[in-house]
């Protein structure tokens, strides 16, 4: 055992052959848009289910001159985002940023940043559940065959039943889509809000599931069709009149939170604001500058 307090790890933590394996599977995932490609998936010093798939993709692709952004729920300062960024920074030394437009690699859980991503950027998504067919066929061997044969009938029945019973397609996040007209893909726990932002985008999207040991990809300019019926179209979470209490954005994904207010009879009140805090902060800053300008 080493007597030095901190060990010296390989650049990007995992060893070079492990990186090669992830790299090979990423290339295959791109050549097969939406298809789940198995990979060996190393054990990391982060628990399974906490972003080990996204981490391994980032570790395999990252270079010393990259600029990295890590978010969770759209937030850079979220505890889990902080923790993953800390591991990546300590084992690569790359520059990190909270600004979406300044990053070359963005690793994320649950959100796609609000600001449109460019062709020189890669979004790495952490995936908990890989297979949309899991809802109807938990057995991996059979689900793999169903994907191979484009046998998606049972999923359509599931969607139909949910419309009849719940009045909406019951799946809130992990919404199933058809990628490039062939594979049915789980969109990770991103809200419906973000689903169509995968469609014909400029950036490359890489999905990593460490515990489930799968990698999949949506290349740029690839069609994404959410599962929907002619008389029952796919809807996002958008509610008419929604507005961010902080920056005033009307066209962004909002989450609710409690604001402490001692004057209020309930000790505070609930309000909605952008889940993408970097986007929101920028807008708050611009609003403030605009207000100051006339003086």
């Amino acid at each position: 055992m080493s007597t030095t307090p901190e060990q010296l790890y390989n650049f990007g933590f995992i060893d070079e052959d492990s990186k090669r394996e992830v790299r090979r599977q990423i290339l295959k995932a791109i050549a097969l848009p939406g298809h789940q490609v198995p990979f060996a998936s190393r054990d990391l010093p982060i628990a399974r289910g906490w972003g080990t798939g996204g981490l391994q993709i980032t570790m395999a692709i990252i270079a010393a001159d990259d600029t990295l952004k890590v978010i969770d729920q759209g937030v850079d300062e979220c505890v889990n985002a902080v923790n993953l960024r800390r591991l990546l920074q300590r084992t690569t030394g790359v520059t990190t940023t909270v600004d979406t437009t300044a990053a070359s690699i963005i690793q994320t859980r649950h959100r796609i940043p609000e600001e449109p991503m460019r062709r020189d950027q890669i979004l790495v998504l952490q995936v908990p559940m890989v297979d949309p067919l899991r809802w109807v066929e938990p057995n991996l061997e059979r689900a793999t065959i169903m994907h191979g044969e484009s046998d998606y009938g049972r999923m359509w029945v599931y969607m139909y039943e949910s419309v009849v019973k719940a009045g909406d397609l019951r799946i809130a996040t992990q919404y199933p889509v058809i990628v490039a007209g062939r594979y049915m893909m789980d969109t990770t726990p991103i809200p419906r809000w973000d689903v169509m932002r995968l469609h014909n985008a400029e950036a490359l999207f890489l999905f990593g599931a460490g515990r489930e040991k799968r990698i999949y990809a949506v290349p740029p300019y690839t069609t994404i069709e959410p599962l929907q019926f002619e008389d029952f179209r796919f809807k996002t979470e958008f509610v008419a009149g929604q507005i961010c209490a902080r920056c005033g954005a009307q066209d962004a994904f909002l989450t609710s939170h409690f604001v402490v207010d001692s004057d209020h009879p309930d000790g505070g009140h609930w309000r909605s604001s952008c889940s993408d805090t970097s986007f929101c902060d920028k807008r708050v800053l611009v609003n403030a500058t605009n207000q100051e300008a006339p003086k």
Partner: peptide, 13 residues
């Protein structure tokens, strides 16, 4: 872990 994005989506459904 925080799940408030997915929970917000669940709430809408």
């Amino acid at each position: 872990l925080p799940h408030y994005v997915t929970f917000e989506a669940d709430l809408k459904v």
